[in-house]
Design a binder for these strands. Structure first.
Length: 265
DNA sequence: AGTACCACCTGACGGC
DNA sequence: TGCCGTCAGGTGGTAC
């Protein structure tokens, strides 16, 4: 479930492995993941180039090539990157494979094919075109006042709002549950029922949860024991011991503690 | 504007 | 054993 913390870890991984190496060959095993240009065109644009730097916005990863264009990666539900030398290390659902001049490979693996790969001349323009809101961890842009302003005057529920990539980018189903659990807010709470104090707490917890997840390499088993994630089957609330519950919110499965997170409002 | 529901897609899992 | 429905959840489209 690659959300903001997972993609941040992919970015750090790409930076540590695949930069500044000439791409000698590109293999596209699943053409349908390529969006906005023909697969052959994507290959042509990558071959002979080097990746020079990486950026992330929400759940999107951008790798800048030495011609100034950007390789754009989105990981859907099941995507990840793997850097390796020998082909017997190739991951099982390798959809796009870059081969570098040093003999190493970078695979974009995506079992369920819900991810996407494309190229853009302008990463900021891509973000604007997709109507993505500010990155959830970019506190320069998304400070508390801006956060409150973006959630203000909305009639919907808090969980779908956190997951709405046009309001803010990067939070998905798992981390919205964790943020709401830590902030002690019921997932179905209406935005217009959140006090200023609760909104401030939501903002603080959003930051803390996302940053903690990144620090723990987005590995749920390494998260603090006070966390809801990883969700245990019929598990108990780590705070009060009450049995955790699941409910559908806006078509998604929400996990929450009915005692700590109040009642449906 | 917000929500429900469906589709995309694969694999795991439970029921029978 | 094996078939089938359901679920997982990011995104995007449609209907209301």
């Amino acid at each position: 479930m690659p959300e903001l913390p997972d993609v941040e870890v992919f970015k750090q991984y790409l930076e540590a492995t695949a930069l500044h190496k000439t791409i000698e060959k590109v293999s596209i095993h699943s053409p349908r993941i390529v969006r906005g240009l023909a697969p052959q065109e994507l290959a042509r644009r990558l071959e002979g180039r080097r990746l020079e730097s990486a950026r992330r916005h929400g759940k999107y990863l951008f790798a800048r090539m030495d011609d100034g264009h950007w390789l754009v990666l989105h990981f859907g539900m099941t995507g990840f990157l793997k850097y390796f030398k020998k082909m017997d290390r190739e991951p099982p659902h390798d959809r796009l494979l870059l081969e570098f001049a040093n003999g190493y490979h970078l695979a974009y693996d995506c079992q369920r094919l819900l991810g996407e790969v494309s190229v853009t001349e302008d990463a900021d323009g891509f973000v604007a075109e997709r109507k993505l809101g500010p990155d959830a961890l970019d506190s320069e842009v998304l400070d508390l006042e801006h956060f409150k302003q973006r959630l203000r005057n909305r009639r919907g529920m808090v969980k779908p709002a956190l997951m709405n990539q046009e309001i803010l980018a990067g939070v998905g189903n798992v981390y919205s549950d964790e943020i709401l659990f830590q902030a002690r807010i019921h997932p179905r709470t209406k935005l217009d029922r959140l006090s200023e104090e609760t909104l401030a707490g939501l903002y603080e917890n959003m930051h803390a949860v996302l940053q903690t997840a990144i620090d723990r390499r987005a590995i749920p088993q390494h998260f603090p024991s006070s966390y809801l994630t990883p969700r245990r089957e019929g598990g108990a609330c780590p705070r009060c011991g009450h049995e955790l519950q699941r409910m559908k919110v806006s078509g998604r499965t929400a996990a929450y503690c009915p005692r700590c997170q109040g009642v449906d409002s």
